[in-house]
Simulated scan of single mutants.
Amino acid sequence: MRRLSIISFKKILLNATLLVGALVSSLSQAELTFGIVAPSSGGAAPLGLGMQKGIESYFAEVNAAGGINGHSLKLVAMDDQYQPLQAARHTRQLIEDDLLAAIGNVGTPTATVTIPLHNEYKTLLYGAFTGAGGLRKAPPDRYVINYRASYLQETAAMVDGLLEAGILPEEIAFFTQNDSFGDAGYNGATQALASHGFGNIAALAHGRFTRGTRNIHQGLALILQAPVTPRAIIIVSTYGPAADFIREAQVDLPDTLFLNVSFVGSQALLDELGEQAEGVIITQVVPPLDADLPAVEAYRQALETHAAGSEPDFISLEGYLAAKLFVEGVKAAGADPDREAIVNGLLGLGSIDIGLEEPLTLGRNDHQASDAVWSTIITNGRFELVEWASLLP
């Protein structure tokens, strides 16, 4: 009997040890869940899918290395089709499902309706794929933190470059989406022109089109009727309408420069235009894809490892870099981070280099990590840096 009791006790002890081990293992492998509300169908799908790919590639890299304090990272994707009402509905659903933060959401009109939800429910919106001023208030919203440079900075780079190239302010026109996205880009460019002393903004041709359509003809007609023939047109659009506009405008304006903000989707625009993309300018908020930088090299390797068959592009690179900085904030949030701890972790990072050889900065009064803008021009199917001074004959 005594021997059976000892054997039974050993079995109980072994089972208890296994159970405790399983519980510890389960806890150590608990997931930290984040969400992305972005288009994965419809005309803006390449933007949402690109951001998702970049974020998931970095999350996969972190998970393969053991996660964060034993926690794996999970991204839940919701398709809003670039429609504000759907974005609001999906955001509310994710918040109610206790996600820790939203990361990489796409678009200005969608951000406009979801920011109030993030503020109301004290849930972070981080690294949204938009440069609009509504995400960059002064003082900043606690629950809105940006990775990328603003549209104000992108369009200022365009205006500065065009003036350096010898184009006069009155020779600049605009073609923009008729909503808060288009307004953000247009207002940024006109502020830049005003900073150079140009005051007759109302005289500049400004064609518009409706979001979700490719009805570019009325806007194009307005620009073609301008009293001063534009030598440069700043476009604030997704890639589809932008491609249609450029393709048709080139017929009547063969010597005009066409400039786009990063949200256009560089590779998608190039694919749509083909040979007609030659000479089109796009501002970028991440480094060139072939940059000799540790973070960019790691991005290219992550795509090979975790997104087989994917070619590098500026959108997924932005998602990857935004996720890389985000993870530093999650690490700083402690062993078992909650929503507030992650916000505090990010805003407490201060100055940090994630492999770009230039520091990114976040703080209580600075909710935008990067101010960098790279101006690129499509040359022989490649994105090259623009040399403004020698751009025109």
Rank of each mutant, 00 (worst) to 15 (best):
M1H: 04
R3K: 02
L4G: 04
I7L: 15
F9D: 01
K10Y: 15
G21P: 02
A22V: 07
A22T: 04
L27P: 01
A30H: 04
T33P: 00
I36P: 03
I36M: 13
V37M: 12
V37I: 11
S41G: 07
G43H: 07
G48C: 14
L49I: 15
M51I: 02
I55N: 08
I55F: 08
S57I: 02
A60M: 04
E61A: 12
N63E: 07
A64H: 11
G67H: 01
I68G: 01
I68Y: 01
L73C: 04
M78V: 08
Q83T: 03
P84Q: 14
A87R: 06
A88E: 10
Q93A: 15
L94F: 00
E96D: 11
D97V: 04
D98Y: 04
I103C: 08
G104P: 02
T108I: 12
T112P: 02
I115W: 00
P116C: 09
H118D: 01
N119P: 05
Y121V: 07
K122I: 03
T123Y: 11
L125A: 13
L125Q: 12
G127L: 07
F129R: 12
G133S: 14
L135M: 09
D141A: 15
R148T: 02
S150W: 15
Q153C: 13
Q153K: 14
A157W: 14
V159D: 05
G161H: 02
A165G: 10
I167K: 01
I167S: 00
L168R: 14
P169H: 11
E170D: 14
A173K: 12
D179G: 09
D183T: 07
Y186A: 02
T190V: 15
Q191V: 12
A192D: 07
A192I: 10
L193D: 02
N200I: 08
T213P: 08
N215V: 03
G219H: 12
A221N: 12
I223A: 05
I223N: 02
P227T: 05
R231C: 03
R231N: 03
T238A: 08
A243W: 02
R247H: 05
Q250I: 04
D252T: 03
T256D: 07
T256L: 11
L257E: 06
L259T: 03
L259A: 00
N260M: 10
S262E: 09
V264S: 03
G265H: 05
S266F: 07
L270H: 08
E272I: 08
E272F: 09
I281H: 09
I282Q: 08
T283P: 00
P288C: 07
A291V: 05
A295G: 01
A295D: 06
Y299I: 12
R300N: 11
E304N: 13
D313G: 00
D313L: 05
F314S: 06
I315Y: 08
L321P: 03
A322C: 15
K324R: 15
L325R: 08
V327W: 04
E328P: 08
K331W: 04
D336M: 09
D338E: 05
A341E: 13
G345T: 13
L347G: 10
G348P: 05
G348Q: 10
L349A: 06
D353G: 05
I354V: 09
L356S: 11
E357M: 07
L362R: 09
G363Y: 06
Q368W: 06
A372E: 08
S375W: 01
N380W: 01
G381N: 04
V386G: 01
E387H: 12
